[in-house]
Each structure stands twice: as structure tokens, then as C-alpha cells.
């Protein structure tokens, strides 16, 4: 019975994925094009929409893998719901779910907000702000929930982060956070306020939430790898290592992607547009790879619970 409930997570996730892709497809075609882009690249409206669909295709594949990955993890956590690790795994899989859902939904929000801004230039600033906040919200919720789960998991095994580990995490976070804050404010002055927010709002609603969520993400990834190194069971470890590797890859790639997207403003000035797109897609592929590892590991662990 529980196995049936568990497998429903996967089929339901695939259904939601399908609906989101269809919605993105319809909106890509139906919403008014960006006339500045059409003029810049000398595109007809048809060519513009075809280009959008070509961009959608690799994104849709990545979203599919992400949805498949998180739903398999959810299915596994359903099977072990009543066990000692059930609550922690439930939190972790919910965090991964928020990360996966964030991918298509932030793209949809950006598409809609951008289209409104195309038609009404007064909406330009609001479009940028809404797009930024959409990214922040999903990341914040995802990493907050995930880190709660990984903390419970480490407590179950009486694991503590070592002094060396703590120092490494703090140093890494302070370094990344400081550079990030510097770049954000440098962009504010050098690129004519690309975030469209007063400084106090930029700090409280963009910088702090991003830094908090990244720190939670780092912590979650570190704690997951601690558990996978300390858990017993030769066959159990085989599945858990893939899950752990998957979570670390997804978390790290998501953080780097957000870091890159919010700091590399005005592409073409610091980096050529082609390089920017290549890096973004590489990071998205890494996220997808993480979800592949996650799905593979979760399926191995599921098998143990089903036979």
C-alpha cells in the first residue's frame, strides 16, 4: 500500500511537470515579443518565438530530470516515513522539491514579467524586482527546509561538525558573502542600479536572504556528506552515497547559478553574451546531473524497502 502511495509521487510530479511545460510553451508563443531583441537581432516575430522555443527545449529536459529526481526522493521518504530517519528525509525531499519547482516557476515569472515590461516600459523596474524575488523565495524556502532535515539526520547519528569543518564553512561563507556584497554594490554604481531597489531594501530583501539561504545550503550539503560517510550498511551506503552526491551537486550548482545570475549584470560588458549563456547552461546541466544521481540513489534505497 505504501509502495503504491510512494510511486504516486513520481507520477504526480510528472503530471505537474507536463502542465508547467505546456504553460511555458503557450505563454512563450502567446505573449508579446521583446521588440528591442527583435530589432537588435533583426528577427521577425515568428523567428523570435522559434528562438524562444529552442531555448525552452534544453530547459524542459533539465526541469524533467529535476522533477524525476525529487519525486523519487519523495517516494523513498514516503516508504521510510515511520522510521527514525523518516522525518529528516521528509524535510530533505521537500527541500529538493522546492528547488526543483523553483526552476520552471522562476522562468515563468521572468517570462510573464518580461512580457508585461515589453508592452509597458513603466513596468521595467517592477519586472526586474519581481524576477529577483521569485528566485530568492524558492531558494530560501528550499534550503531552510533542507537544512532542518539534515540537522535532524546528523543528530540521529550523534554527528557534530568538527572544529576544522566549522572553520572551513565560516571562512568559505564569509569570503563568498563579502565578495558577493561587494559585487552587488559595485554593480549598483557601475551599471546604473540594475536591481532597481534602494540600498536598504537591497540589503534586507536581496543580500541577506541570499546569504542566509546559501549558508543553509552549504550546511545542508556538508551535513548530508557527513551522514553518508558515517552510516553503516554496505548496500545501504551504496544508495546513500549517490543521494548524498546528488544533493551536494544540486545545492552547490544552485548556489553558483544564483551567484552568477545576480552578479554578472549587463552581459557583454564583463563577459561576452555567448560565454554567459554557456556558463548558465553548464550550471543547469550540473543541477540536472545532481538530480540524476539523486534519483539513482533514491531508487537503490527504495528497492531495499520494497523487497
Amino acid at each position: 500500500m505504501r509502495s503504491v502511495k510512494a510511486s504516486r509521487h513520481v507520477s504526480r510530479a510528472m503530471l505537474y511537470y507536463g502542465l508547467l511545460v505546456v504553460l511555458y510553451l503557450v505563454l512563450s508563443v502567446a505573449l508579446p515579443p521583446n521588440h528591442a531583441t527583435e530589432a537588435a537581432y533583426k528577427l521577425t516575430t515568428l523567428q523570435y518565438h522559434v528562438l524562444l522555443l529552442l531555448v525552452l527545449f534544453p530547459l524542459a529536459v533539465i526541469w524533467l530530470i529535476a522533477f524525476y529526481g525529487y519525486s523519487n526522493m519523495k517516494a523513498y521518504s514516503e516508504l521510510v516515513k515511520d522510521s527514525t530517519e523518516g522525518v529528516s528525509l521528509d524535510h530533505i525531499s521537500n527541500g529538493l522539491m522546492w528547488l526543483a519547482w523553483g526552476l520552471p516557476i522562476t522562468s515563468l515569472v521572468q517570462l510573464i514579467a518580461g512580457s508585461i515590461a515589453n508592452a509597458h516600459t513603466g513596468f521595467d523596474s517592477a519586472s526586474v524586482i519581481i524576477s529577483n524575488y521569485a528566485s530568492i523565495i524558492f531558494l530560501l524556502i528550499a534550503f531552510h527546509i533542507m537544512s532542518t532535515g539534515t540537522r535532524l539526520w546528523t543528530e540521529q547519528y550523534n554527528l557534530r561538525i568538527s572544529i576544522g569543518g566549522t572553520k572551513f564553512l565560516v571562512l568559505a561563507f564569509v569570503t563568498i558573502g563579502s565578495i558577493y556584497t561587494y559585487v552587488i554594490f559595485h554593480n549598483t554604481y557601475a551599471h546604473n542600479d540594475p536591481y532597481r531597489l534602494p540600498h536598504w531594501l537591497l540589503i534586507t530583501t536581496v543580500v541577506i536572504p541570499y546569504l542566509y539561504s546559501w549558508f543553509m545550503g552549504f550546511l545542508a550539503a556538508y551535513e548530508v556528506s557527513m551522514v553518508s560517510k558515517n552510516v553503516t550498511g554496505l548496500l545501504y551506503q551504496q544508495g546513500l552515497r549517490y543521494v548524498s552526491g546528488g544533493i551536494v551537486t544540486v545545492v552547490a550548482s544552485s548556489i553558483v547559478l544564483q551567484y552568477f545570475r545576480t552578479t554578472v549584470i549587463a552581459p557583454g560588458k564583463a563577459l561576452p553574451l555567448g560565454s554567459v549563456l554557456l556558463i548558465v547552461y553548464l550550471l543547469l546541466v550540473l543541477i540536472a546531473l545532481g538530480y540524476v544521481l539523486l534519483a539513482y540513489g533514491a531508487r537503490k534505497l527504495k528497492k531495499i524497502e520494497e523487497v
Binding site: 522510521s83 530517519e85 550498511g233 548496500l235 545501504y236
Partner: peptide, 15 residues
């Protein structure tokens, strides 16, 4: 079984 299945051992054998 714990040597091979870790925390899943009890559930596995019970099943």
C-alpha cells in the same frame, strides 16, 4: 543484516 543494510536492517528482516 545491519552490516549490509544499516538502518534498513530491522525493517528488511521484519518484512
Amino acid at each position: 543484516t545491519h552490516v549490509y543494510l544499516g538502518p534498513a536492517a530491522d525493517r528488511f528482516i521484519a518484512r
